Simulated assay, not measured.
Amino acid sequence: MHYTSELIMRLPSHQHPLQFRGYTLMELVVATALLAILIQLAIPPMSRLLSEWQREHATRAIADHLVLARSEAIRWSQRVVMCSSVDGLRCSPSSNREWKSGWIVFQDIDGNGQFGPSDKLVAVSQGSHGIRSIRGNALLQRFVFMPTGMMASGMGTLEIVPTMGTSQRITVNRIGRVRLSTSLPVE
């Protein structure tokens, strides 16, 4: 022990083993300010990227279900309906044009356009998060595919509007083909 205290006393102050080197308050304030600036610069691009990803996810989910509905109509030679649905159990009322809460795809065995006990459920979607709106043109509430794969009505369009970025349109033409297109940026 005697040697240790002598050794400590002989070392210059900058080599003292018990002396700790830390950051000053000013260094911590400057580093925190720089970090805050970098975060402020990174958040808008990340928000836009997340919004575009959510839009792409919603677009792909709807397009995939439309293709599924058409192929099931052809496969089973049966009318297949894809309609907006809030609860996943029945089609939304005709006054509700919003699709972001979800939709269902079913074989319309009784031909009334509404999901009922005699119909066969094909798919359910619980909707899309982070999307401002998914709306149909005019009063589009459902897509009805005939056993030939053609639409029972004319062409239908859904527009997916994200919280920021560009919106996207899904158009189903009379013969049941799905086409995607990008719209104007969302403000």
Results as ranks from 00 to 15, higher is better:
63 A>M: 12
180 L>K: 13
67 V>S: 01
72 E>K: 04
184 L>S: 15
149 G>T: 00
81 V>Q: 01
113 G>D: 08
157 T>Q: 09
118 S>P: 08
144 V>K: 00
179 R>L: 03
72 E>S: 09
62 I>S: 10
149 G>P: 00
19 Q>P: 02
148 T>C: 07
111 G>D: 04
128 S>D: 03
65 H>D: 15
114 Q>K: 12
32 T>A: 14
5 S>P: 03
51 S>G: 10
65 H>E: 07
93 P>M: 05
181 S>N: 07
105 V>G: 06
33 A>M: 11
158 L>F: 01
90 R>T: 14
121 L>C: 08
95 S>E: 13
14 H>R: 11
21 R>P: 00
86 V>M: 13
152 A>R: 15
180 L>D: 04
170 I>R: 02
1 M>H: 12
33 A>K: 07
52 E>H: 03
125 S>F: 09
112 N>C: 01
177 R>N: 00
141 Q>P: 00
26 M>A: 08
109 I>K: 12
79 R>Q: 11
105 V>T: 09
107 Q>W: 02
121 L>Q: 10
164 M>N: 09
166 T>W: 10
59 T>S: 06
52 E>V: 07
152 A>E: 11
38 L>R: 05
89 L>V: 14
84 S>D: 08
34 L>Y: 05
54 Q>D: 01
28 L>S: 13
56 E>H: 10
183 S>L: 13
99 W>I: 06
130 G>M: 08
109 I>P: 06
173 N>Y: 15
135 R>M: 01
54 Q>P: 06
81 V>R: 02
9 M>C: 09
98 E>C: 01
1 M>G: 13
156 G>T: 01
102 G>Y: 06
127 G>Q: 10
146 M>V: 01
134 I>Y: 08
10 R>E: 10
37 I>V: 15
73 A>L: 09
88 G>T: 15
141 Q>D: 09
126 Q>F: 05
107 Q>I: 05
142 R>E: 07
60 R>V: 02
185 P>N: 08
7 L>C: 14
123 A>W: 02
135 R>E: 04
63 A>H: 08
62 I>N: 05
98 E>S: 12
4 T>V: 06
109 I>D: 05
157 T>K: 10
89 L>G: 09
109 I>N: 11
157 T>R: 05
95 S>I: 15
116 G>K: 10
75 R>M: 12
65 H>G: 03
142 R>Q: 13
122 V>G: 01
56 E>W: 04
97 R>W: 13
99 W>N: 02
152 A>L: 15
150 M>A: 11
89 L>R: 15
87 D>W: 11
146 M>C: 05
68 L>Q: 04
52 E>I: 02
183 S>G: 15
